[in-house]
C-alpha cells in the first residue's frame, strides 16, 4: 500500500489502535466558561441545532494544527461558530461585532471593579 492510500484508511480522529506514550493521568477542575460551553452544546443538541455527531465532525474539520493548539472547549466553541455560519444561523460579521461588544463590556466592568477596590 502506498503512503497516500494509507492516509485514506483513517479520518483524523480515527485514532483507536495507533501507538502512543504512557497514559497522562491529568484532571482539572472545569472552568465556569467550559461548563457553560458544555451546557450550550447540550441545549443545541436538544433543539436539534447541532447534534453530537455534527459537533465531532466540526471539531475534526478544524484540522490538525488547530486541534493541537487549542484546548478541548476552545475547539468546541470554534467548531460551534463554524457550524452556525454554515447553517446560516449566524454570520461571521455578527459574531465579530458581538465579540467586540462583550470584550468592551468586560473590560469596562473590570476597570470599575479595580477602581472600587482602590477606593475601599
Amino acid at each position: 500500500m502506498t503512503q497516500t492510500e494509507n492516509l485514506l484508511q483513517r479520518l483524523p480522529t480515527e485514532m483507536g489502535g495507533l501507538d502512543a506514550g504512557p497514559i497522562q493521568r491529568v484532571e482539572h477542575e472545569y472552568a465556569p466558561w467550559e461548563k457553560r460551553c458544555h451546557a450550550l452544546a447540550n441545549v443545541l443538541d436538544i433543539h436539534k441545532i447541532i447534534s453530537t455527531e455534527e459537533k465531532r465532525r466540526g471539531v475534526e474539520s478544524l484540522g490538525s494544527e488547530i486541534d493541537g493548539a487549542l484546548t478541548y472547549y476552545e475547539r468546541w466553541i470554534v467548531a460551534f461558530a463554524n457550524i452556525l455560519f454554515q447553517k446560516q444561523l449566524l454570520t461571521p460579521g455578527e459574531l465579530a461585532q458581538k465579540m467586540d461588544q462583550v470584550e468592551a463590556r468586560w473590560s469596562r466592568d473590570l476597570q470599575k471593579e479595580r477602581t472600587e477596590r482602590v477606593r475601599a
Binding site: 465556569p32 466558561w33 457553560r36 450550550l40 470554534v78 461558530a81 468586560w106
Partner: peptide, 27 residues
C-alpha cells in the same frame, strides 16, 4: 488562558471565553 487557570480572578477572559459568551448571547 482561562481554560488552564480557572481562577484568573480579575484578569480579562480569554478570546475563547469571549467567543462562548458571544455565541450564546447571539443565539
Amino acid at each position: 488562558d482561562h481554560a488552564r487557570s480557572p481562577d484568573a480572578g480579575d484578569a480579562m477572559p480569554s478570546y475563547y471565553e469571549i467567543m462562548e459568551t458571544s455565541v450564546r448571547e447571539l443565539l
